[in-house]
Design a protein around this nucleic acid. Structure first.
Lengths: 109, 109
DNA sequence: ACAGAATATTCCGGAAGAAGAATATTCAGG
DNA sequence: CCTGAATATTCTTCTTCCGGAATATTCTGT
């Protein structure tokens, strides 16, 4: 869990994860999409892979990275332990949901 | 969201959050429970407060820290965006099973 | 086997951040 | 008001980690 948080606690890596949410991408795709230089993308992907957040499978000339489901499921399970926190506070929950649904408002990054 | 991940991406802070899950605690309580020195506990709590993960309310001589629900709800909402991940995994599994039965076209990105 | 594209790795300088020690602040009670 | 307990704040290393640049590696097609 700590590894997951550490992996996500960096802006570019969070952006990469967010991009990969839409589907698998090659390193070059990530470079083009996010405007980060290739070596840094490779390094960040390496970090994400070490944390188990992504997996690689080579395809022709490229290496395709995709999100792994497992850490997200673990995160979900981790969150369950905190559910008692907000279970009773539906008023706040409404506010949060509104905030997230606001157009132009990015819930991440 | 990034702030939340950064706040949780440190072992002692994660431990503090985990402790506070059981209920509000004073600084001294945290010190005793986790065996971290008082100044570091204060600093970490300060960091957690800046990230909106905890709130303080003084009580007599002590300062009581408690978890705030909001970031956890946001995290939950953030996770929802990734739910397709493990749903899609079943899709892929279905697709693979289909392909085995009737080999056919190229999967699209 | 070679050339070129795609990706990974290494080295370095600098910035962020965590711990330790010492000190400052705040506050309740006498 | 003073005192002591509880907590916060500086200041100083020290380590970790990110980005930039250069280079190495790996693979494909020819």
């Amino acid at each position: 869990m700590l590894d997951t948080f550490q992996a996500l606690a960096e802006p570019n890596r969070l952006a990469i994860v967010s991009l990969l949410k839409a589907g698998p991408r090659s390193v070059g795709d990530v470079v083009d999409a996010l405007g980060i230089r290739q070596p840094q993308v490779s390094k960040h992907l390496s970090t994400l892979k070490a944390a188990g957040l992504v997996e690689v499978h080579p395809e022709a000339n490229r290496r395709i990275y995709r999100l792994r489901a497992q850490p997200f499921m673990s995160l979900q399970a981790w969150l369950e332990d905190y559910r008692a926190l907000w279970a009773a506070r539906f008023d706040e929950m409404d506010k949060i949901l509104e905030e997230i649904q606001q157009p132009g408002d990015e819930p991440e990054e």
